[in-house]
Design a binder for these strands. Sequence first.
DNA 1: CAATCAATCAATCAATATGTTGAATGATTG
DNA 2: CAATCATTCAACATATTGATTGATTGATTG
Lengths: 225, 225
Amino acid sequence: MKSADVHHPIFDEIADLARTLGHAHRLVLLRHIADGELAVEQLTQLSGIALANTSQHLQHLKRAGLVQTRRDGKRVLYRLADGPIENVLAALRNLANHRRQQIREFINDRISQPDRLENISREELVRRMRNDEVVLLDVRPQNEFVAGHLPGAINIPADELEQRLAALPREKVVVAYCRGVQCVLSADALAILRARGWASRRFEGGLPDWAAAGLGVEGVNYESG
Amino acid sequence: MKSADVHHPIFDEIADLARTLGHAHRLVLLRHIADGELAVEQLTQLSGIALANTSQHLQHLKRAGLVQTRRDGKRVLYRLADGPIENVLAALRNLANHRRQQIREFINDRISQPDRLENISREELVRRMRNDEVVLLDVRPQNEFVAGHLPGAINIPADELEQRLAALPREKVVVAYCRGVQCVLSADALAILRARGWASRRFEGGLPDWAAAGLGVEGVNYESG
DNA sequence: CAATCAATCAATCAATATGTTGAATGATTG
DNA sequence: CAATCATTCAACATATTGATTGATTGATTG
């Protein structure tokens, strides 16, 4: 409203925070630190960033109050600071994904050849689920999964898939699904799965197609009507 | 195996976004633009930033895809781009406020300071619901919820909120509501949500205000017939 | 206490970002 | 079509940031 409001120092503080997040190395480091306390050298190995460089970025993060440290013998362990830090990261990831998706929809270079992505029809999926031949993989963000998902599905958001591949069985066919035909998350997931040698298919219709067919859905939006 | 993940281009994209938000001038401009379409000169006046400088920052925002433009006669009008941009800003603001409060050991006393960020108007709520930017949280007892609630709302009674936080998404703004202005349930809920770092607002009018405005209500008292 | 290890500091250079100035563009007006 | 207005561009000086290198600090080990 008033210019006094506009010059409020909160803007500078927010800008400092944002600038601290404005470097891929620091985002990578934060991502690893978010999984638990880690020492500097472990972080260099996980990230591939040179030692002194890693240290500097970590101190940048520390100055900004995003991480805290603790000494354990010779090592210095870094952990996430208190506060809604992961919310900010999630929001940024969300926005970036939103953008990517728009770009992909525009170019439409991925789903244009559905055969290569090995789509599975709803009918075949139902049949193979009955025979316990498949594992359902929901690659949408956790909150959407919580709100409602196909029965028995495992939730691994697409951007975490590479780290969490171990959670998937190798002896069944993995069927990935997401928000539906316009969503590329499951296509991304399939690329990862196939690159790592998983037997995998894609249920293109996703949750909307499933629900529209009157098949059961699990989740908070659906229990106790 | 992690290094492949680490070099994923999404990190660079997120970093670019964050860096774009990493300057107080651009945050100020975004804040004004978020209120509605504005021309460059109006923005210079509102922000106090020199004309050419304003223009450059606006173009920075445009390059980053955070704003879009439209020509109207001689003027160029800037507006927010699509996507969960306000969520990112809210998350950053939230984190910065969290830090400020920690530093000052500030004690938050409920409704005594109803700051502008806390309450959300019906108009803004409707708009953000349309954009799928918010999650509605009904914190009244279950029986009242069943009788009637805002469309799409999740019901978690205020006294169960702390145990059931996991049901709430982190990447959308949570808007809590209850029986209306005289009811403190949603204020309590907001205290819990903010303490745990959720981006959250309060729809003060609650169900009565919503229904009085002639907006749709879901529930057994309202279903067809 | 010397040797070793983990992390940080200091100094440097290259690359980017910012603010300012004045000129150039694009659309409207008389 | 010339004048005017709103905005953008181009060029420059200055500041900030990032990566690299080698030295330094702090803690442990023998």
